[in-house]
Design a binder for these strands. Structure first.
Length: 409
RNA sequence: CGGGGAUUGGCGCAAUUGGCUAGCGUGCAUGGUUUGGGACCAUGAGGUUGCAGGUUCGAAUCCUGUAUCCCCGACCA
């Protein structure tokens, strides 16, 4: 991609209503653009990041036998009356044709349970896990913090169905491990901790995945020994680490980037979802649900990975692999060569000053910046600089692609 | 949802006892000079001051209503 052709330009000033680091930097660098409070447009750079996050999640969900589906954003209100959740304050209500009452789904238990019920009748059909990556709508009392709390946001939701609690527990642990793998690949594994939360009526705990960061909305209580935490609900009832029993929990700020939950039979009972076991006996289906918001993860990454001049994207979710800056009219040949080697490159071909190009590269935050200029050629090649480092080095042209490949593998 | 603040070219801002043709920066266009950390000069385009109504000789400025945004709080599978 040539930067001169890219839809969406950086700005020296930032919209005065940007209320958080992620909103400021993502808006200023033209990754997102706010439509209304808590609702954002994704521009090409932003969509690339979001898609990369989604694809990492998708790969890990597929590895644990999740089958991807796509459910609708709107549903008849009746399903929500069935479960008693039609009074949730975050529900958006709308009218269909005639007197049809519809809701915009804030989550999909009310959709997925009747859907799976149409195809699953026997223990032979279980276990089963389906997921989607889709838009959720929640009419939050107060949207805020850029991508961290929106009224419309992107979410991956996985639902699992089991013959009994034992099998639910087995799969729940598998999902837990898959989540850590995802955060690791996205580049926030170091800061993301398992957090014990209330389990509702049917299980002792649910689990949140909380990413430690100063700007976080949540306060959690971290065990320095086990590096697990408990949330406020739990600390109010037990003051110790659930793993080691330590009472030296530290209050820290964090952002919730995932939540997994044993639903048990709450929804299968509401929809009368039974299966026949090997004896032909009618049994209730056990369920789990597992949420993760790619858009919120994207915002959280920016909160965590930036400096005072811009974003510093982790390598697996950067919008491009290479930010190539051409000076002195150079760069086109190198750009074409990188493209031919399948390197994902954005080429700043604009006829503006070097300083402006450097400033934009810092703001956009692609992990590797290359500069090709008369100066770099006099020094024997191409300047190679990591966004996360201060110093640059000169690389000979023949070594460039292998160095790039090495960095990304 | 309760309390507070704000709304002026694309973006960031200025303009009050109500007073001249609503300014500045940035961005944009054209020409020229520059050319490794957001260059400089010149010229130009771009605003019925969120919307609706009212007071007045005269409203960005005062009044009423309304919409939106932000902050604090409550809320938050």
């Amino acid at each position: 991609m040539k930067y001169s052709q890219l839809f969406g330009k950086t700005s020296k000033t930032v919209a005065s209503d940007a209320d958080s680091i992620n909103a400021k930097l993502l808006t200023q660098a033209a990754f997102i653009q706010k439509q209304i409070s808590g609702v954002y447009n994704y521009l090409p750079l932003g969509l690339r990041v979001l898609t990369k996050i989604q694809n990492i999640i998708r790969e890990e969900m597929n590895k644990i036998d999740g089958q991807e589906i796509l459910m609708p954003a709107m549903t008849q209100e009746e399903s929500w009356i069935t479960t008693g959740r039609n009074t949730m304050e975050v529900l958006f209500h709308l009218k269909g044709q005639g007197d049809t009452n519809l809701v915009l789904n804030p989550t999909h238990e009310e959709v997925v349970t009747p859907l799976v019920q149409k195809y699953v009748f026997s223990y032979r059909d279980l276990p089963l896990a389906v997921y989607q990556i889709q838009t959720k709508f929640r009419n939050e009392a107060r949207a805020k913090s850029g991508l961290l709390r929106g009224r419309e946001f992107n979410m991956k939701d996985l639902y699992s169905f089991h013959i009994d609690e034992t099998d639910l527990n087995r799969y729940y642990e598998i999902v837990k491990q898959a989540y850590f793998k995802i955060y690791e690949r996205i580049g926030i594994g170091q800061e993301t901790v398992l957090t014990f939360a209330s389990g509702g009526n049917f299980s002792q705990f649910s689990h949140e995945f909380q990413t430690l960061n100063e700007g976080g909305e949540d306060t959690i209580y971290l065990c320095p020994i086990c590096r697990v935490a408990v949330n406020k609900e739990i600390i109010d009832t037990q003051k110790t680490c659930p793993e080691c029993g330590s009472d030296k929990l530290e209050a820290v700020k964090a952002t919730e980037v995932g939540n997994i939950f044993k639903l048990r039979t709450k929804f299968s009972e509401a929809f009368k979802f039974y299966y026949s076991d090997s004896q032909g006996q009618k049994k209730i289906v056990e369920m789990g649900c597992y949420g993760m918001g790619p858009s919120r993860v994207m915002g959280t990454v920016v909160e965590l990975r930036h400096d005072d001049v811009g974003i510093i994207w982790p390598k697996n979710i950067a919008p491009y692999q290479i930010h190539l800056i051409g000076l002195d009219g150079l760069g086109e040949d190198l750009y074409q060569e990188l493209l031919s080697k399948n390197v994902d490159v954005i080429f700043d071909d604009r006829e503006i000053s070097a300083g402006a190009k450097f400033a934009d590269a810092d703001l956009i935050g692609i992990p590797i910046r290359l500069v090709i200029s008369q100066r770099s050629q006099e020094k024997g090649g191409i300047e190679f600089k990591l966004r996360s480092e201060k110093e640059s080095e000169i690389i000979e042209a023949k070594d460039l692609v292998s160095k790039i490949i090495k960095f990304y593998n």
